[in-house]
Write a protein that binds this DNA or RNA. Structure first.
Lengths: 184, 184
DNA sequence: TCCTAATAGTTAGATTATCTAACTATGACT
DNA sequence: AGTCATAGTTAGATAATCTAACTATTAGGA
């Protein structure tokens, strides 16, 4: 988690947070093959963007008292309403985290009355998790902001750019999925 | 921090980690204006990418026993060699984190002999931080991987796509910088 | 049927990266 | 000299993870 509220800045702290500039500089000193430079440079920008996109979302969600991980959990539960019952194990699998982590997240959400646990009648080891009406209300309150933050990421691209970017994004998506997907 | 080593998976856990599919579905149910859909959809992909790009970097750096935050610190110190002396406060400003956080990071790095602290003679409140030869050696060992991971993010894009993407990236960069930059 | 295996969930304890608030020197300015 | 600001640290918190060990409970084979 990282929040950048509060502000300790004083007069002489004009320096901006470390951008990518310095890294590019270092790269030029460090990298041999000139051909790669451009890709690396773009990769660096992507890395920087990644950090900051998540930040922006964090900041936008903060007023609702919820974080992305927790919203993810609620959305997952919401998507499952009316389908098969869902258990902590199932949640862990779908979110790609450990059962123990799910327990912690559920504890937090349950304490606020946004989810509820109910023991399964058939298999008493299992627990059925569901989102409560209050949880659903929260999600409905948060979603407009969530979508609008998503959409606003592309604010400065024109129609033509969006069109190309769409294709590029889907390639990147596949590409990263390959890198990350196998092991889990 | 999030590492995805270890593997608890068993036979029936075929379900992939929650992708973006479900969110798109939810969006379709939730969003009114059809015009926005495409942007939101792309924003969602960007959000997903962000998470996973950082993951990939984490995983690639892990073998070196260092994380991105810590590498960032070392790179910053390396860039400052031979220039003005740098202090924890300065580091905090440039990395966009609190002085207290810098203290923690420095403690960790110092314990491993990768950075050193030295009291300033002129102003005894200040401390000059520098990277040690060992720290420099580590960075030099890590950098090839770092660059190659950056570069590999674009692996699947062809020359034409890279060209357009470059421009798009710089727009996105500016755009996010606007959103995030003012407050700090 | 009984025993061993596996499975579900939780607990305990750790790590990473942050934060705020309070504290200790030290320096600067009136 | 006295007050105020600055530098760094400490203490204590939170979020999101993890692993390992533990407790029920079920399932499957001998």
């Amino acid at each position: 988690m990282e929040r950048k509220t509060g502000n300790e800045c004083t007069a002489d702290q004009q320096l901006p947070a470390l951008g990518i500039g310095p890294y590019l500089e270092l790269m030029d000193k460090t990298t041999a093959q000139d051909a790669d430079r451009k890709s690396i440079r773009m990769g660096l920008v992507m890395l920087w963007l990644s950090d900051n996109i998540l930040d922006v979302m964090d900041v936008d969600l903060a007023p609702f008292g919820i974080t992305e991980s927790k919203l993810d959990m609620l959305l997952l539960l919401m998507l499952h309403e009316g389908r098969e019952l869902i258990t902590p194990s199932g949640i862990a699998d779908r979110l790609g985290i450990r059962r123990a982590s799910v327990t912690a997240l559920l504890d937090w959400l349950e304490k606020r009355g946004w989810v509820s646990r109910e023991q399964s009648a058939k298999d008493r080891r299992m627990i059925h998790v569901s989102i409560t009406p209050e949880g659903r209300a929260l999600v409905n309150q948060v979603l407009p902001t969530f979508w609008s933050t998503c959409g606003s990421l592309l604010d400065d691209l024109d129609t033509e750019e969006r069109k190309v970017f769409e294709k590029i994004l889907s390639k990147l998506h596949q590409s990263i999925e390959k890198k990350v997907g196998v092991g889990r």
